Amino acid sequence: MKFGIPVYPGSNCDRDIGWVIEKVLGHDVKYLWHKEQSLAGIDCVIVPGGFSYGDYLRAGAMAKLSPVTEAICEFAEKGGLVMGICNGFQILLEAGLLPGAMLPNKTLSFICEFVYLKVENNEIPFTHLYKKGEIIRIPIAHAEGNYTCTPETLKELEENGQIVVRYCSPEGVISEEFNPNGSLNNIAGICNKRGNVFGLMPHPERASEAILGSVDGYRMFESIVKSVLV
């Protein structure tokens, strides 16, 4: 299986994801420079975290205009698997592949810490190896992770099961106390209606080896592989 990882000026998590895919998971990676227009041979695209184009204007706003982002949109529209992590999630929102937008954290500061997530939807290719309601521990590292959307969009997300993971307590309690950034309804990650596009703020690639303090993120990548190859 071959994963495509776009690299924008300012990306800084592309190699982290590549390490997990190649060294831990044992699959192929193709790094896609931001001017790339072809995704031929790619089975899944993972848009990495970082500060694409320095987050000028706002996070992801300039990256959505890149040729590779246009190619990713076409790939997703044809049913291709696309996952966006942190800045990658912000890019997917800006590109219109996922609904809603990101605001600065409620603290107005950068947050880098482990958080707990409750798996709300385990029926998409990215999470099917988790149990519904399972609590996982994965780190965040962002300044603009405060997800928001219109009441109408929120209603659709809730009714369609598009909220994939939420911030919670170690015991699974979902409340403002365990919401690190002010995100609407404790939303940490969402998918599109088809389930082939998934964006989340936490970094599963930083929780895929025991030496990093958690392996709870590894199954997201393993889920992708098994959904494609099985």
Rank of each mutant, 00 (worst) to 15 (best):
residue 121 N to Q: 10
residue 154 L to Q: 09
residue 143 A to D: 06
residue 167 Y to L: 02
residue 173 V to A: 11
residue 175 S to K: 05
residue 123 E to A: 13
residue 147 Y to I: 06
residue 165 V to C: 05
residue 185 N to L: 08
residue 124 I to H: 04
residue 129 L to K: 11
residue 167 Y to M: 01
residue 126 F to E: 06
residue 149 C to E: 11
residue 132 K to F: 06
residue 161 G to P: 07
residue 127 T to Q: 06
residue 166 R to H: 03
residue 120 E to I: 08
residue 163 I to W: 03
residue 153 T to W: 13
residue 125 P to M: 15
residue 149 C to W: 09
residue 168 C to I: 07
residue 159 E to H: 14
residue 128 H to Y: 14
residue 172 G to L: 00
residue 143 A to N: 13
residue 169 S to L: 04
residue 175 S to W: 09
residue 151 P to A: 07
residue 169 S to N: 09
residue 138 I to T: 07
residue 157 L to C: 15
residue 148 T to V: 15
residue 166 R to I: 02
residue 128 H to S: 08
residue 149 C to S: 14
residue 170 P to F: 07
residue 139 P to A: 00
residue 121 N to W: 12
residue 169 S to C: 04
residue 139 P to G: 00
residue 126 F to R: 11
residue 136 I to N: 07
residue 133 G to N: 03
residue 134 E to R: 12
residue 129 L to Q: 06
residue 145 G to L: 03
residue 156 E to W: 11
residue 123 E to P: 05
residue 121 N to E: 09
residue 151 P to G: 05
residue 175 S to C: 12
residue 166 R to F: 01
residue 183 S to V: 07
residue 169 S to D: 02
residue 128 H to D: 07
residue 135 I to F: 03
residue 158 E to I: 11
residue 139 P to K: 02
residue 167 Y to V: 00
residue 164 V to A: 08
residue 150 T to M: 13
residue 121 N to I: 06
residue 163 I to M: 10
residue 143 A to P: 12
residue 152 E to F: 12
residue 131 K to R: 14
residue 141 A to R: 01
residue 182 G to C: 07
residue 142 H to P: 06
residue 182 G to S: 09
residue 131 K to V: 05
residue 145 G to I: 01
residue 161 G to M: 10
residue 125 P to L: 14
